[in-house]
Amino acid sequence: MGAPCAYVSLHRRRDASHDDVLLLIEDVTEISDVDVQNLRQRDFLERLLDSMQEIVLTVDRTGHISWASRRCAGLRSKNLFAASRPTATFTDTWDAAYLSGSSPAAPVEAVLELGDGSMGLFELVFSELDAREHEGSALLVVGRDLTSIRRLEEKVKQQAMYDGLTGLFNHSQFHMILEREMERSRRTGRQLGLIFFDLDRFKAINDTYGHQAGDTVLRRVAAGISAVVRKGMDFPCRYGGDEFAVVVTEVTPEIMEGLARRIREGVVTSCKGAVDLSMGLAMLTPPDTGESLVQRADRASYAAKKLDGVKVRWAD
């Protein structure tokens, strides 16, 4: 237990017969201990809030920020609505009217300026503060940092859609794109084609120089394809191994054959002649399914291997 603490006061008293002093000593040891405990508890809570990944604010019904945790201390005395911008998923009005209801507002995903020049993506969750603990009507705002979560989600999305080595659409995404574009072609009447090819002499590169050299070739193949396809209209995919496919939309046979030749030239140039392509071309026909269209283009690619010169073969 700490040293005793006392409140001492002197009061002088005078009357006709007396002139004396009243000494009043009041023991405030217990009160002092409570104050110390409160201060310690406050310091602990402030350190706890400062160590959180989340940001913590208190705001009034106009959005004025009266208190902010250390990570966003620069927001103090600013307005929440001026310092933040909701994401596209938010369709309400972002102003003081959003906090005017009697119950806490719904969580909002927003980009927040942290007051030090940096910005972050947060989910803002609102809770009513007890009027006894805060002057006037106020809200506690806890912001959960979504930046790393969204980055991880984007990485998972990329892995789900794209081939990790070449950056082209992967096998599963190829089938989704093909089915989607086949449906669109039949709905709009615009023609759809498929270019399917594999690499000539690729096995020799792997056998002679190793798989690392083979991976370099595959990346160069992808670069050669990407350089010539029409953005948003043609969808290049790594089908598997050294097999590639390009879903070609809004196309005629003449345009698709020209595109196939440019792809071959781009790949041969990118790979410095180390590989060549055996290419099969197929246009979507009324009886086709996704599987039958791929089979026809694949068979044409296999037949193209027997050709001399530019190895491009149309499906029967």
Rank of each mutant, 00 (worst) to 15 (best):
R190P: 02
R190N: 13
Q191Y: 10
L192F: 00
L194R: 04
F196G: 13
F197P: 10
D200V: 13
R201T: 11
R201E: 07
F202N: 11
A204E: 12
A204T: 05
D207Y: 06
D207I: 05
D207Q: 12
D207H: 14
Y209A: 12
Q212C: 06
Q212V: 08
Q212Y: 05
A213Y: 02
G214T: 00
D215T: 03
T216M: 05
V217R: 11
V217F: 07
V217D: 00
L218K: 12
L218I: 02
R219S: 07
R219K: 01
R219H: 03
R220Y: 03
A222I: 04
G224L: 09
I225D: 11
S226G: 15
V228Q: 10
R230N: 07
G232I: 13
M233C: 02
M233V: 09
P236T: 13
G241S: 08
D242M: 01
E243R: 05
V248Q: 13
E250S: 08
T252D: 11
T252H: 11
P253Y: 12
E254R: 07
E254K: 11
E254W: 10
I255T: 07
G258I: 07
L259Q: 10
A260D: 06
R261C: 14
R261M: 14
R262G: 14
R262N: 11
R262F: 10
R262H: 12
G266W: 04
V267L: 08
V268W: 01
K272I: 01
K272S: 11
G273F: 03
G273K: 15
A274P: 00
A274R: 00
V275G: 00
V275M: 09
D276G: 01
L277T: 09
S278W: 05
S278M: 05
M279W: 12
L281A: 12
A282R: 06
M283E: 13
L284G: 10
L284H: 08
L284S: 06
T285I: 08
T285G: 03
T285A: 03
T285N: 07
T285F: 13
T285Y: 14
P286F: 00
D288K: 06
D288P: 06
T289D: 04
E291R: 13
E291M: 07
